[in-house]
Amino acid sequence: MTQSDRLIFGPSARRPSSGLLAPVMWLGGVIATLLAMAVGAVLAVFTAVAVAVIALFAAVLVFFAGLAMGARRKAVIRTRRADDVIEARKVDGAWVAYGWERPGR
């Protein structure tokens, strides 16, 4: 530790490593480290599970979108029959359509 470090951090910056409290502090540091590693591992597992669930939902969404696109391509397009033609005439500035009534009404 340099002289400037001693001025910044004060006399409590470096504690002596010998004494009765040193092994207890070392054991506390080890326990805190292990606890932090365990919490990090649990959070990593939760994150991995969340990513897997999101990927599963995305795969299901893509699957159903593929089914919808396939059904859309296979849909039968009905062609208009010749007798379904609508006739329209302009009467007094307005268009009037004839032939749009459905037969059998």
Rank of each mutant, 00 (worst) to 15 (best):
V51G: 02
A52H: 09
A32W: 02
V51P: 00
G66K: 10
K74E: 12
V60I: 03
G40F: 01
V30I: 07
V39S: 12
W26T: 08
V53D: 04
L67I: 12
A82V: 15
A48T: 03
V53R: 03
G28K: 10
T47I: 05
T47H: 04
R73Y: 14
V42E: 10
A68L: 12
L34D: 09
F64T: 07
A65N: 14
I54G: 03
A58Q: 08
L61P: 00
I54K: 10
I54F: 03
V30D: 03
A52F: 14
A71Q: 02
A65Y: 03
F63V: 05
V85G: 04
K74C: 14
G66Y: 02
R73S: 05
M25F: 15
G29V: 01
K74S: 13
G28M: 04
A68M: 10
A52R: 15
G70C: 13
R81I: 04
F46E: 09
A68C: 12
A59T: 07
V62R: 15
A32C: 09
G29R: 01
T47M: 12
A52S: 11
A65P: 00
V30M: 02
A36C: 05
A55T: 07
L56E: 11
R78H: 13
L34R: 05
V60T: 08
R78M: 02
R81Y: 03
L27P: 00
A38Q: 10
L56P: 01
A82T: 02
M69P: 00
V45C: 06
L35V: 08
A52K: 07
A36L: 12
L67R: 15
F46I: 15
A38S: 11
V45P: 00
A58I: 07
K74Q: 11
A59R: 08
V62T: 15
R81K: 10
R72K: 10
F64I: 02
V53I: 08
L56T: 10
V42L: 10
L61V: 14
A36V: 05
V39D: 01
A52M: 10
M37A: 03
D83L: 13
R72Q: 07
V76M: 03
A55I: 08
R73T: 04
I31W: 03
G28Q: 09
I54C: 13
L43P: 01
V42W: 05
F64K: 08
R72G: 04
